[in-house]
Design a protein around this nucleic acid. Sequence first.
DNA 1: ACCTGAACACCGTTCAAGT
DNA 2: ACCTGAACACCGTTCAAGT
Lengths: 205, 205
Amino acid sequence: MTVDPSTLPTRDRILHAALTMFGESRGATLSVRAVAARAGVSTGSLRFHFPTQRALLDEVLRVVYEVIAPEDPIHDESLTGEERLIACLRQVLAPSGVGAQAREAATLLHRAFIEPEQTDELRDAYLAMEREGQRRVEHWLSVLEKDGALPRGDNARRARFLNSVLAGLALERALPSDGSILASETNTLTMAVDAVFRDTGGAVR
Amino acid sequence: MTVDPSTLPTRDRILHAALTMFGESRGATLSVRAVAARAGVSTGSLRFHFPTQRALLDEVLRVVYEVIAPEDPIHDESLTGEERLIACLRQVLAPSGVGAQAREAATLLHRAFIEPEQTDELRDAYLAMEREGQRRVEHWLSVLEKDGALPRGDNARRARFLNSVLAGLALERALPSDGSILASETNTLTMAVDAVFRDTGGAVR
DNA sequence: ACCTGAACACCGTTCAAGT
DNA sequence: ACCTGAACACCGTTCAAGT
């Protein structure tokens, strides 16, 4: 199942190096030189296959979410509770994609629910979607609670919070950005999940 | 009321140059060399007065938001640190409005930065906006730190997190909802701010 | 078509040397 | 104490030159 990178075509060697580095540390600085050196190619070659650093990082994200982790990680006992929840949230984000795909997803959402006249049907359709997202997150939280990984608390409240964070991250994927979305997204997810694990209740009153 | 910068002590000359540049373009890159050149001093001198670039930018923001625009709940001593930060974040959200107004704001953002072809100018324009938002939140955090209300930590990281949360809340204001956005928003802000106050650093590794 | 590596134009920070 | 400017260790991108 493992690959010998040296047998791979250059483009894949570069991608493999970047993925490895990302795997070793999700916040790693995937600079041109660092990735090129790791892959054993020149910076020029890297630029040939990935015209900008953004293009490389977008591709890294796409592979991570689409190829490597497509199955539900909530039951992965090799991970801590926090890690499991983060992995699940990343799955929610995955369909929005990155780059042009993320922009398309945002456009769809906009055309469907923001632009048109706000009728009751429209509202109901959206609320149904939202409820589903809410339930999905609540489900994960309840699994973690059952495993004793997450302190008992108000999971509805926690899930609402996480969904707001996810909405923000999805929007940010569609907006322009420098090369730092990758680390920034990891950072935000980490802080949000930490908040949930430390949350001791205190619903809004 | 205007000042002749050449009569100012070096530190103030540097600050004056940085403020002028910031005033000319909120998205200006206030690099060491650019500011030093504008102030007519060496990079070494700039570093002497401002040990890091962060220190300089913090001071610029402090002056902008404190001297130029001081009517800000961040200094309301009758509130706890958490409450003050929440009040400020609500101020950020306020211009997006609610209902139809929020939808219009979301449409503007969408038309300006998501729909059109992603050129360099577009990206730069958005990144400038984003940087300003980032700096604004960082400023509030640094004030709270100085007051001893917020434990020392990585404020850049904290601000990135809060801005993601704000993006999500702004989007949710534009989307359909039942009557609970208000409470939901308060809930999310509370959890996000709690997360920041409990965050003990731990940048992404 | 693919790849190299130097070169360019930037960053922020450090520091020996001057006054 | 204050200031200089070179030097260091980075960035991302470009490009003539090779195969």
